[in-house]
Design a protein around this nucleic acid. Structure first.
Lengths: 146, 146
DNA sequence: ATAATTGCAAACACTTTGCACCTGT
DNA sequence: ACAGGTGCAAAGTGTTTGCAATTAT
């Protein structure tokens, strides 16, 4: 099951604080651990993982799965994003790791389509499109990995 | 790097044979192991993983990554399937964990759209749509998790 | 007071790898 | 003969869990 946090612990606050300070970046659990270690702050990894999971459930952060053998990464999206306002789709480049945020009407049609034709209510927060971005497609750099 | 098989071993033949016998299904490495164990056939797991990797490279099978903590799954697409035929999209229900695979023309439009308007070449093998499936939407069972 | 959260260490699941032996060509 | 493949068992990675101690309410 998932933890529904009710207490405001300093570990949680520090975590959210850190994540929000790197908005727009992809942070792995390992990154978080490393960051706090560098800061001389001690937070158990179990706590990190548990809080990250909670925060994903709460919609405060998003979780992205790049590859089966890469660690999951997280991105701060804010604590008050509710009214379904700025719907935003994510595209992640499997080659360079770049993340695009698209605010696109046409993509929203797939929500309608999935919903009407397949009875499936898509959650854009949880869904990430994986593929190859423009730059990597042109240059064909097979080299660098995210 | 990846193994480019040159020898025709019986392990490889049995593996391909099994995978092609369950075309249209999602098979994990564990499923394969279990299958051969049930058959009383002995194939090392290292071989399974190595051959699966090769077969993916060769395009004989596809590999799907549903979730960070689920095993990768594989699907036979044939040894001669080249023209990018049977493209299949995956929808994962965040509530019950059910996995749907859709062979849908309209969804393929989003590939065109992403490609033309955003220069992003979508990889349907890696992309999974998350949301709530029809059944869970109706019943509103918030209970079970994947 | 007491329920939630922490942190350690051990457990986990899936996958990869080192290396000696076997097999296909 | 010899490159390539196999299989065991061990190592890895990233993540989760049991449980006693700690902390927020």
């Amino acid at each position: 099951m998932t933890i529904k946090p009710k207490y405001k612990t300093k570990q949680r606050e520090m975590l959210v604080s850190y994540l929000s300070s790197v908005t727009g970046q992809h942070i792995t659990a390992g990154d978080v651990l490393e960051y706090f270690k560098e800061q001389g702050v001690s937070i158990g990894q179990a706590t990190i993982y548990r809080q990250l999971e909670s925060l994903v459930d709460e919609g405060v952060i998003n979780k992205y799965i790049i590859d089966a053998n890469s660690p999951a990464c997280f991105e701060y999206v804010g604590e008050e994003t509710h009214g379904g306002a700025a719907v935003c789709f994510h595209c992640k480049c499997s080659n360079c790791g770049k993340l695009l945020h698209l605010h696109c009407e046409e993509l929203m049609e797939i929500q309608n389509h999935l919903s009407k034709e397949h009875g499936f209510v898509l959650d854009p927060k949880r869904t990430v499109f994986y593929g190859i971005c423009e730059d990597c497609g042109k240059n064909g750099n097979e080299s660098d990995r995210s």
